[in-house]
Design a protein around this nucleic acid. Structure first.
Lengths: 199, 199, 199, 199
DNA sequence: AATGAATGAGTTTTCATTCAT
DNA sequence: GATGAATGAAAACTCATTCAT
């Protein structure tokens, strides 16, 4: 039964099982047993590949972050101007891959977990910062010195839409993007480069 | 030690202890023992007053919601025009009482819990709806038929700011309010009553 | 609210509540809270009148035994010959008062309890002995020296019918009596006074 | 310490430990901890093999029933006529294996438990029915249409003897069998096939 | 006489983790 | 590499009992 080269396969299926368990449970209050069962392996094996439950959870988080990173890069490839790159980030965040209930609920759980786990916090912060500078960098040619403020506005709106989606308060994914794009458009109108600062 | 009429006192101190425990832990993964100790009573007493851990958590949630409701009403009293009432809601949500780390982190935990607990979900939904219609009602004289869309934008931004605050990605509370007020202002400029709809 | 002379009333209603709780639960695994609620009084009061849960249970047992004793004496009054007195005991044991499901199940629980509680054991033994000598005394003029053996047969049959009734394996109460009476009749035929002993 | 293929061994020793605990306590009011200690394993292991306390108890019951079934079959092998098969059942029920205090007290506890647990009730009912038809089938050639009635008489007497044995009201096991055999003999005398029915 | 407040010990159950095979 | 055996600690919850009022 034991095979060689199983490691990456097992790790991936365990991580995906963990994500599925987190979604089903709506929290990190899941058991190794449940994860192992979903992955179709024994409890012992989960510990063989992951030092602890926490390590598995961090891996799951990293997995989600990586998927998101891929999405951003993929959208970025299609863009060749600052305004389009801003939209690329919005599309990656609120597109049909990321903005599915299964993904959204897990993200939220990780966000909350980051309040207490330094590993999780570090991971999330790195990504948030990277995203933020990316946004600011592309917003600056469009709206000048207010770019950081608007980036914060965009990020807040996106995060808020995740919460509302998870709770079922928000439905369609098309209008989610429109909401944010509209915000960007109006900021560009109100604050053309060199124009009116925030009062 | 036993006295008469202790019920409301004990219930309140247990609820507050629960909130404090949730904040400290950053999740609902807290023990009745911890809560009871924080409230200075025995474990048994916690069960005497609350049928289950879940019942205690729901009570804690209701408590937070009630506090927020008070805050909204208090801000509303000072307002006497639609535009001021919109600001009153923003102030209540992002004011120094609600937007403290201790409160913000607990809100977030409850939001996530609502994904899985129907009691919690119901509570949160009622409040969200009430808040939304309040916003829409006051936005309508200002921006007309786009009021629901803008209300959604405001609510998303506020929720997002909570997440970012909880993660420490967002610092000052003054600028949080400014960010949302700025959004409202620009919507009013771009969409005066009878004006331009969302493209 | 406190009244004088409540003691006997409270005690009786608590004892009856205990019996009803035992029947409902099918075992002694009942709570003081449940008993108190059934009696319509507070938990504390149950302890006021009964030193402990065990004391209450013993009282309940004594109550049942007393009721049975009354039944036997009442049937005995109608009898004026040994043969009739044997039937009186059978009637008292398997009559419609004692042989109801509610009573039967509680008797059984007490029987089992007597295996472990010396108080319960003592109570039951006293009654069993009294019943046995009563039976033997009246059987002797009918079947002579085999009276003790036949008394044992009667008692066993009655006890067995209780078990079977409690389990629902036995239905009609008329035939229960007939079964035992038939046994007595045949013993009288086979072993007339001075006749054939058990082989 | 952990070895392979321990499951059946552990299950059996836990079941036997449960029976021993029930006998010692005289009721089902036993703890998993006690059972695990008697079996020489940890509390956790008991839950590893039995989903719940109730599942363990039902297993213990099944075990006792199986042992009894073996006893019946073993006695039946020696019998080659209806009259002998009736005696075989009596011997199996009141023989030195089944009629020991340790076994009798546990049987009684299970009987009472069957009033409340549907699993236990089902198990016991199946056995009771099988036993009853077995008895009736073998009694019919001996006493004709009264066979069901006499079977009921035999079963009641046996059950009653168990109760009396458990309470210490009945001592010798030889005379227990004689008591029932005597009942059978007299029924055969009084009701030869085609003879006198119950009045 | 009667209540309800309060406790602490005890019970079942769950679970991450370790380890022999 | 993979399994299942085994543990021990901790959790929620129950309950008889005590006590102030």
């Amino acid at each position: 039964m034991p095979k060689i080269g199983m490691e990456p396969i097992r790790r991936k299926s365990l991580v995906e099982a963990a994500i599925s368990a987190i979604h089903a449970r709506g929290s990190l209050d899941i058991t190794i047993r449940d994860i192992a069962e979903r992955a179709g392996v024994s409890q012992g094996l989960a510990h063989h590949y992951f030092a602890s439950k926490d390590a598995l959870i961090v891996s799951a988080m990293r997995y989600l972050l990586t998927e998101y990173g891929k999405q951003v890069r993929s959208e970025m490839k299609k863009a060749n101007a600052p305004r389009q790159r801003v939209s690329a980030i919005i599309n990656a965040s609120l597109g049909s891959d990321q903005f599915r209930p299964e993904t959204v609920s897990v993200w939220l759980v990780f966000y909350v977990h980051a309040q207490v786990s330094s590993d999780a916090h570090a991971l999330l912060t790195v990504y948030a910062r990277r995203l933020s500078s990316n946004l600011i960098y592309n917003l600056r040619p469009l709206i000048g010195e207010q770019a950081p403020m608007v980036a914060e506005g965009i990020a807040s709106m996106i995060d808020g839409l995740y919460i509302r989606k998870a709770l079922g308060s928000f439905k369609g994914d098309l209008s989610a993007r429109n909401l944010v794009e509209d915000y960007v458009e109006q900021q560009m109108t109100a604050r053309p480069v060199g124009g009116n600062p925030l009062p």
